[in-house]
Every structure is written in structure tokens, then in C-alpha cells.
Amino acid sequence: MTERAPPTYERYLPWRRWVEIGFWVAMIGANCIGNSMTTLIDMRRQGSGVEAWEPAVWEVSSALVWLLVLIPAIAWYTRRFPLHWENWRRRIPEYLLASIVVCIIHVVGMVALRVLAYRSQGMTYEFGPWPRELVYEYLKDIRSFATIVVLVEGYRFLLRRWQGEASLLAEPDEGPPLEPVDRPERFLVRKLGREFLVAANDIEWLQAAGNYVNLRVRGHDYPLRSTIAGIETRLDPRRFTRIHRSYIVSLDQVASIEPLDTGDARVHMKDGSALPCSRRYRQDLRQRTGAEAA
């Protein structure tokens, strides 16, 4: 296999975290400024005696809770419990419940910040009747929650396609398969509209990542829609072995095994990676590889 990840993707990785943070700061910040200005204008038209800083406090308090708490939590939740076409009927009730939790955290957090801001000015903040205001805020927050979920999942989908997403070869519509489907010898990788094959023997190690398993091939990761247990049963046990609840390694790629005081171990791979090995797998791995302790 000679295909490599696009240089642009490799150059993007060091900047990925900053781009992601910058996107949400810019998006929430622009919304915060716009809402503050329009709210102040509307209230002035109505003859309200609200101070000019009050709408800014209302919007900034909401924005801070979204940026510092809720967006990271939603990103974690969608990674831990991803929403796909195959599971959306089962996931929708869970996501609706999550949206209620998001709303409660949002309201409690922003009200607390507003109370502190008003106290600093010698004033008292009145949120209003909680049942009515919670319903009002939820009608807004569920739209924000859905928008964030769509943006996060859409971004991950684009990253997988840019990086290269792996899949198992399916049985042909007619005739027998060219190779065993239950124990694949190759994986199909789709990347930016192109397709190529990755030999199973080229996989150095595999790592669980939510509903995906990353296949490490010559320094690049290709996500495969599977659980780590599911793909373990389809790999050749003579070549691959489990070393951790989240890792499977190619026996040919193990360089050494470093025992740790805890009883676990650290597996050093030929590509320079160091992977965790649980104590339950440590002795079996040493016997199968004959690797010397590092």
C-alpha cells in the first residue's frame, strides 16, 4: 500500500484544536454581540430603563456557560454516544433527555453569573418564575443543542473523509467473495472521493475510539465503524492480539515489553509508539512475542 494521507491533513493536525476553539469562540461571540445590541435597541424603543450594560451581561453569561461547559460536554457526549442512521430511533430519546440536562445547566449557570454581576453593581437580578422561564429557555436551548450536535457530527464526518475512513469489504451481489469476509485480508479506505485497499497485515495496531476503531497503518489512522471486540473476532489471532480493553496490536510490530510496578506493562512498537498493556494480557503477550523486557 503506497497511499498516504494528504499533506494538507497532516499540516492541519497541529492547528486542529486551535481551529476548533476559534470556531466556537467566533460563532458564540458573534451571536453574543448581535443579541446584546438588538436587545438593547428593542428595550430602548419600548422605553425601558435598563442600563446599557445589562443586555451585555445577559448574553455574556449565557455565552460563557455554552463555551466553557456545554459545548465541551456535548462534544464528549456525541463522541461517547454517537448518533447514526443505524441507531437514531434508540438514540433520539436519550438525546432529548440530554437536551433537558443541557438546558438546566445552562439556566442555572447563567443565572448564577448574572446574580454575581448585578451584585457587583449593587443591584438585584430577577430571573422570573422558574417553571415558566425554564420552559421558555428550553425552547431556545433545544434548537441550540440540535445545531451544535449537527455541526459537531458534520465536522467529524468531514475529518474522517479527509483522513480516510475504512470499511470492511462486503460480499458481492453475485458469485462468491474473492477473499473470506469473516476474516478480512484487506480493508477498503475512502478518502476525498478516492478508494484504495489496506492489507490487514499492514495494520500495526488498533485503538478503540467510541463507535470507531482507528487502524494504525504506517503512521496514519483510518477510522473503522466497529467496536474493538467486534473487529477482534475478525482478525487473524496468529497475527493480532488484545493487550488492553482499547488496544489490539500486530505481533510482528511489537519491539519490546516494559513491565511496570503496577503489574501492567508498556508495549513499545517498532514505529516508536508506546501502548498500554493490562496485566491480564501481559504474560500472554510476552509468551506469544518472545519479546525481551525493555
Rank of each mutant, 00 (worst) to 15 (best):
R89P: 00
Y281M: 05
L224M: 07
A199Y: 06
E94D: 03
P93L: 04
N201G: 08
L113I: 11
E133Y: 06
E179Q: 08
I243L: 12
S99D: 03
G154T: 01
W66N: 10
A30N: 04
H244G: 13
N201F: 01
L134N: 08
R279K: 13
I74W: 01
V69A: 14
I228L: 15
G175T: 07
N87R: 05
S246A: 15
T78I: 10
I148Q: 03
I104W: 09
L169M: 03
I21D: 09
P93I: 02
I257L: 12
E171M: 01
R119Q: 15
V149F: 00
E179N: 03
V254G: 13
G49H: 09
G22N: 08
K140L: 01
V115M: 11
E20F: 02
M1P: 09
F196M: 04
S120C: 08
Y138E: 05
V135C: 10
D182C: 00
I21L: 13
F145Y: 13
R89E: 00
V150R: 02
L215S: 06
I100V: 14
R183C: 00
R44H: 08
E51D: 11
I100P: 04
K191L: 00
R288H: 04
P237M: 05
D264N: 14
R119K: 15
L206E: 09
I228V: 13
P259Q: 09
V135Y: 08
P223L: 09
A294Y: 12
V60N: 05
R89N: 02
R11G: 00
T262Y: 04
V198E: 06
G272M: 09
L215V: 10
T233S: 07
Y138D: 05
L251D: 12
F187P: 02
I105Y: 04
V57F: 11
L251A: 12
L178A: 03
Q253P: 07
L235F: 06
P172Q: 02
A166E: 07
I74E: 07
P177A: 00
T124Q: 12
W58K: 08
I104T: 14
P184C: 02
L188G: 00
Y212K: 03
I148L: 02
L64H: 06
L64T: 14
L251P: 15
D221A: 12
R183S: 02
W24K: 04
L96A: 11
D221H: 12
P6M: 01
V102F: 11
V50M: 05
R16D: 02
I231L: 10
S61A: 14
D182E: 05
R280D: 05
T8K: 01
E171G: 02
M43Q: 13
L134I: 14
A117S: 14
C32A: 08
E86M: 00
V149Q: 03
P176M: 00
S256F: 14
T289W: 07
Y247S: 12
I21Y: 11
W130N: 05
R16K: 12
A73S: 15
